[in-house]
Design a protein around this nucleic acid. Structure first.
Lengths: 175, 175
DNA sequence: GGCAATTCGTTGAACATTCAAACACTGCGT
DNA sequence: ACGCAGTGTTTGAATGTTCAACGAATTGCC
């Protein structure tokens, strides 16, 4: 198992292109959004997901899943959005540990105002450089990677506390 | 110019897959590296680039270019690496505004110790999920996007300053 | 019913990143 | 020489993110 050789040229090329492009594109979008909409992308995403959710509301954990971030980040971000009045929280009756985050009208307004800036930026930084076929290819590869990371939270073959065996068995096992 | 319509389903799909995959993969690598090498990816990258540079040293601005990050970030990161003894700084004689950052033997040691963890993580989180053809595709698309972002610092259609044209090669991370 | 493990979420401190402003030096134009 | 715009880097405050520890409610199990 400690079969650890370093990356070869082709692997490095793949990594450098993927990571580099992601960094370049997303950083550019970040700056565009900050400049044109005065909002970090992370917050935009939260508003976006809330808006497209039933009742414009989601549990904290759903938000964490949707944005692929950690619970703590969501707590802090939602706290900030609440201060801005973009979001309001409601205790969950069914499970009293939980909270719903609800998009307010103000939040909806901010989202709608930010949307065009976001669309422009994404077109300019990503879409515009790809042919339709390239876009499909990139989507396919991204989805493939996403599928591979489903259920592979952070762990993956690690100290292993006991777990439900039926739940633990799926996910991508990596050679 | 204000030709701003929102993103259509295909554009959103491309974005979601690309951004989502990048986030998932890079976050997983971040955690692996933090856990197995006790080092953030950003710092690993700096050590890596220094090691592959002539004399194991680079100017601050070269580091910023190589890692595609801002000057200020490099200043802070290098300060931290210096505290750890992984790096040492030298005033640049030719241009006394500038500084060289030099990889120390300790830093080289830390890099070599971290390398296998990094390689493993990248294989596990990225490479393993892609066929050889997919890797080439992903590399091609990434490079395409990178090329599109060359010279498009933050601005883009902005004051535009001249730059040293001979340094073309930059990358993201490579163990 | 009762206890332990688990899940949902929060907290605060540590850390990283960004931004705007500043500083220090270079080099051109006059 | 001089001044001044431009470049390379730093600073510190504001902001965002992570981590480990925690509390509260729920679930599973016997």
């Amino acid at each position: 198992m400690p079969r650890t050789s370093l990356l070869d040229a082709e692997e490095r090329r793949t990594l450098a292109a993927f990571a580099g492009a992601a960094k370049a594109v997303l950083l550019a979008v970040d700056r565009d959004l900050e400049r044109d909409a005065g909002m970090p992308r992370a917050y935009y995403e939260i508003l976006y997901f809330l808006d497209s959710a039933p009742e414009r509301s989601m549990r904290m954990s759903e938000l964490a899943d949707a944005t692929r971030s950690q619970a703590s980040r969501i707590t802090h971000a939602v706290a900030r959005l609440e201060e801005s009045g973009f979001v309001r929280r409601e205790l969950c009756a069914a499970d009293r540990r939980g909270w719903f985050t609800v998009l307010t009208d103000d939040g909806k307004g901010a989202l709608e105002r930010a949307r065009p800036a976001f669309a422009d930026s994404v077109r300019r930084r990503l879409i515009a450089h790809l042919s339709p076929a390239d876009r499909r290819e990139l989507a396919r590869l991204g989805e493939l990677l996403l599928a591979a990371h489903e259920g592979t939270e952070t762990d993956d073959e690690r100290p292993r506390r006991r777990r439900d065996p039926d739940r633990a068995s799926q996910g991508a096992l990596i050679p």
